[in-house]
Design a binder for these strands. Structure first.
Lengths: 121, 121
DNA sequence: GTAACCGCTTTCCATTAGGTAACTACTATA
DNA sequence: TATAGTAGTTACCTAATGGAAAGCGGTTAC
């Protein structure tokens, strides 16, 4: 009864709720780097330096902050392997896979929108 | 072959592309108010003051800015009805409905995540 | 005339996000 | 011993975001 079947928007009475939900989701996912980072780690676990190389333009400070934020929200996990020297590997959590649909939709929309905007210039 | 069927994430070779797509999408949709505003207008067209009342906490300056941004991205339309006094009514465009899936997914995820975070405190 | 409403704009200010560069502690390699 | 890599931290700076308060030009109601 309460499931979002067929991706229809909720009716009037649930609008305020949907508004709050979207607002809350954006509070967590907002920012320039969070979703690209999660997407990148869903591809494969990676080390700090690998992330810096893959996500072009991110500075170590910002990367460290974003990783902490994402960890607090259960979206990624920081693994420390006690080898010498220690290897620190970040990976997407099982929970982060709840973002799969959002990421797929965003990727699709972003590509489409880029083409639309290009066409209008 | 290249379609995103069944919402699976793209493979390795398309990762960079997906990264860019998500990055671009977030560039447009980022911010505290844009998606809630679009969602609100998809419900029904509204006037400036109605939006101020419905989207709690937004100031007129910020609202005016966000509306301009959204108009530039073809997501909403500003209609001026030459009655006396003029009525200005904002409405979601047909194009904005390409965000339906994203909004539905975000609403769903936001609600779920709020509950998850609550449970952990 | 005066007050109030509409759709903003303007000014000012505080907070946040994000960027640069240098630096640290540790380990490994030459 | 010197150099380089790893995983960040620190200090400093700028730009963008966002909020409060007031005002403004027009219209309408009293």
């Amino acid at each position: 009864m309460e499931t979002i079947e067929n991706k229809t928007l909720p009716g009037r009475e649930e609008c305020a709720g949907a508004l709050k939900n979207v607002f809350d989701a954006m509070y967590v996912l907002n920012g320039k780097w969070k979703l690209p980072l999660v997407l990148c780690l869903m591809q494969s676990p990676k080390r700090f330096n690998e992330l810096q190389k893959e996500i072009k333009g991110i500075s170590p400070k910002v990367l460290a902050n974003e990783l902490k934020d994402l960890e607090l929200n259960f979206l990624i996990q920081r693994n420390v392997y006690p080898t010498t020297p220690v290897r620190i590997v970040y990976e997407a959590t099982a929970y982060s896979h709840t973002l799969k649909n959002i990421l797929a939709e965003l990727s699709h929309w972003g590509e489409n929108h880029r083409n639309k905007v290009k066409g209008k210039i």
